[in-house]
């Protein structure tokens, strides 16, 4: 590889970045756990906490800033939104602890919390 000889520092930088990113990704993947509930925050405030073991559908927000959130078979997914970019809809379902769906235009975050053994199993409502 001619390129590697003339671009040694570039190659080292690229390899180091890929290794660091890969290691971080691997660590996140190995330590992931199915979540207990979906926490809904709008503009930094928690507005809802939905257990993932109960199927449900909610329209979040008001006026022309709404996202439709569906909880189904242990996963949360935004199925519709009236924001222009539709990033949250395209993202699909999340189910593991720490994952989140973000709608930046509406300042909405749906994050999966409370995974592991002490999930919602013990709650009696």
């Amino acid at each position: 590889m001619e390129w590697l000889k003339t671009h040694r520092n570039d190659a080292i930088l690229i390899a180091a970045l890929l290794l660091a990113g890969g290691a971080l990704l691997l660590w996140l993947g190995l330590t992931r756990q199915a979540g207990g509930f979906a926490q809904v925050r709008i503009d930094g405030e928690t507005v809802l906490e939905l257990p993932l073991n109960e199927d449900a559908e909610f329209v979040l927000g008001e006026g022309e800033h709404t996202n439709t959130l569906v909880i189904k078979s242990g996963a949360a997914q935004v199925i519709a939104a009236d924001c222009p970019d539709q990033v949250c809809v395209r993202q699909g379902a999340v189910r593991y602890n720490g994952e989140s769906i973000v709608c930046l235009p509406h300042k909405l975050i749906v994050s999966i919390e409370g995974g592991g053994s002490n999930g919602v199993d013990g709650s009696t409502g």
Binding site: I14, L17, L18, A20, G21, G22, L24, L25, L28, R41, G44, G98, E99, S100, V102, L104, K107, I109, S111
Partner: peptide, 27 residues
Amino acid sequence: VAMAMLETARLAWYLPVLWISGTIAGV
């Protein structure tokens, strides 16, 4: 900045993926 503005550390989850994609795009 998104983490600071939305007051959540949850977005750190995206970091490794964007880290790798940023490297490849940068190349």
